[in-house]
């Protein structure tokens, strides 16, 4: 078997784990967690520069955008217009067309607003962006996003930051089966087994932030997630055994004394 890679918008990656860069105690811890995770892509936010204290260290001083792909994200945007504006700025700041779109519907659940998300996807694609799109775990919405030009479908496993794990395996699996672009579970992973579940369902990758950043030892959890994603991927490729309702002995019955 050759290298098990995945490709999004013409770029090929080996790691199937994408990690966020929010909520860390320090840039040093963040960089160490990214290294331990093996991630080749990190999500970043676009925010106003700190004019009152411009000498503050920058994320780019700790995580090199030349070696790690920065995926600008629109977290915190609640309308298509805000998200598009943010990504136009991101493109200017970094020069990247590959972006992550998320348009949220409400603060309480941070559930995506799919009407605004679809509208933003259409505009971004017209403007030459390659949006990887955060969405509900709905196979029809996923298909509509793909038709609109999304380069990857990123359904939530559970609400952002909840750590509840994959709540609806059936719909995630339906999205995987129906999509021609990569599918990555984005949001909801709490611990390593959740990441493995996503990969066992056939997802191309997993994106997480809080599960690593809020672990007691984020660097160790980053490594756990790396291994969990790899284990889940291998289990998916290996093809799991069928499930039975009753026992089936592993030792031969013939030759019993």
């Amino acid at each position: 078997m050759g290298a098990d890679t995945w490709t999004v918008a013409g770029r090929t990656f080996t790691s199937r784990l994408i990690v966020g860069t929010g909520k860390y105690k320090s840039f040093e811890q963040n960089a160490a967690a990214v290294a331990a995770s093996g991630a080749e892509i990190v999500t970043v936010a676009v925010r106003r520069v700190n004019i009152s204290d411009p000498g503050q260290p920058l994320l780019t001083d700790f995580i090199d955008p030349k070696t790690i792909t920065y995926l600008p994200n629109t977290a915190g945007c609640f309308t298509a217009e805000e998200a598009i504006r943010t990504l136009r700025l991101a493109r200017e700041a970094g020069g990247w067309e590959l972006v992550k779109l998320e348009v949220l519907g409400e603060a309480k659940t941070l559930y995506p607003d799919m009407r605004e998300t679809l509208r933003a996807t259409e505009t971004l694609v017209r403007e030459g962006f390659q949006p990887m799109v955060y969405c509900v775990d709905d196979p029809i919405a996923a298909r509509q996003l793909e038709e609109a030009g999304a380069v990857a479908i990123m359904p939530l496993g559970a609400p952002i930051g909840s750590g509840l794990g994959i709540q609806n395996r059936v719909t995630i699996r339906l999205i995987v089966e129906g999509a021609k672009v990569p599918v990555l579970v984005d949001a909801g992973v709490g611990t390593a087994s959740d990441a493995s579940v996503a990969m066992e369902l056939g997802c191309d990758g997993v994106l997480m932030n809080t599960a690593i950043a809020e672990a007691k030892d984020p660097v160790m959890m980053a490594r756990a997630m790396k291994l969990a994603v790899e284990a889940g991927r291998l289990a998916y490729l290996a093809g799991r055994m069928g499930q039975r309702r009753y026992a089936d002995p592993s030792s031969p019955l013939a030759g019993l004394i």
Binding site: G20, K23, N30, R47, A90, E92, A93, G161, N209
Partner: peptide, 30 residues
């Protein structure tokens, strides 16, 4: 004023009275 100033043009574009600027960069985020 809600329009991107391309990085290549930053030195050429003059600041005018009443302009409204947003200056952003990448920060840690999900």
């Amino acid at each position: 004023n809600l329009e991107i100033v391309p990085r290549s043009a930053l030195a050429e574009v003059a600041v005018e009275d009443g302009d409204d600027y947003e200056i952003v960069t990448f920060v840690g985020g999900g």
